[in-house]
């Protein structure tokens, strides 16, 4: 298989398989998780301003008081790499084109140079997060194979995409194919690893927020 065939495979069959497994996994996991049900809370609810599941869904995106100072790397690094990933995925022109092709939705992208810069910053933040995971006793203690694996699976698409655009290491065609392949691996493993938090965090925040909202506590 030459590089163009490889690229065509990842753009064709590979993508089909990856998106298929992704959709399969997401639906299966979401149903598996959210059909477990929960008991109705019979205690008379108390109401308070700013306390609801929806409030918590949004509020949890901000660091609680004092926490930024306690764990600056987690918050700042986390913000940078999450926002960076979102910018790259949703505002990079070739990525928008893919989304448009798959969903019909379209919006303007950002200049390549800017995306380049965001990519470098994102990678730097991810490396810092990795170092933090290695250095920080709590993170190291909690880390399992899955944590290292998912870091790599998330990092690789960013790295290969950047290398491809910068024409580094391998010819563009091969690197582009590797980039798409790595993104497909990410899609495939997402529903079955902690990366699934991209979906469940909304449910989790909502559960937490609404349960505490019944007590009148905005969390």
């Amino acid at each position: 298989m030459n590089d163009l065939q490889f690229l065509t495979w990842v753009r064709g069959t590979g993508l089909d398989i990856a998106v298929g497994i992704f959709l399969l996994g997401v639906l299966w996991r979401l149903i598996e998780i959210y059909t477990l049900g929960r008991k109705k809370d019979l205690a008379a609810p108390r109401h308070a301003a700013g306390a609801s599941g929806l409030h918590t869904v949004f509020r949890r995106s901000l660091p609680p008081p004092g926490m930024l100072k306690r764990s600056p790397v987690s918050y700042i690094g986390g913000y940078i790499f999450h926002i960076g990933l979102a910018v790259i995925v949703f505002l990079g022109a070739p990525h928008i084109l893919l989304i448009t092709n798959l969903t019909g939705l379209s919006w303007p992208g950002l200049p390549t140079q800017f995306i380049d810069l965001v990519t470098v910053v994102t990678m730097a933040a991810m490396v810092v997060m990795l170092v933090d995971r290695i250095n920080k006793p709590v993170k190291r203690f909690l880390s399992t194979f899955e944590d290292w694996f998912t870091w790599a699976v998330t990092f690789l698409p960013v790295l290969t995409g950047w290398l491809a655009v910068q024409h580094l290491l391998l010819p563009y065609t091969t690197m582009l194919a590797l980039h798409i392949l790595s993104a497909e691996i990410l899609l495939v493993v997402l529903p079955f690893t902690k990366l699934f938090h991209a979906f469940t965090l909304f449910g989790s925040r909502w559960y937490n927020g609404s349960a505490n909202a019944r007590k009148g506590v905005p969390v």
């Binding site: 690229l7 065509t8 753009r11 064709g12 069959t13 993508l15 089909d16 398989i17 998106v19 298929g20 497994i21 959709l23 399969l24 639906l27 070739p94 990525h95 084109l97 893919l98 092709n101 798959l102 582009l176």
Partner: peptide
């Protein structure tokens, strides 16, 4: 077809879903 879009229409996706 742009390089960043699927080379073939996704056939498995709907069935997989």
């Amino acid at each position: 077809k742009a390089l960043s879009v699927p080379a073939d229409p996704l056939k498995l996706a709907a069935a997989a879903a």
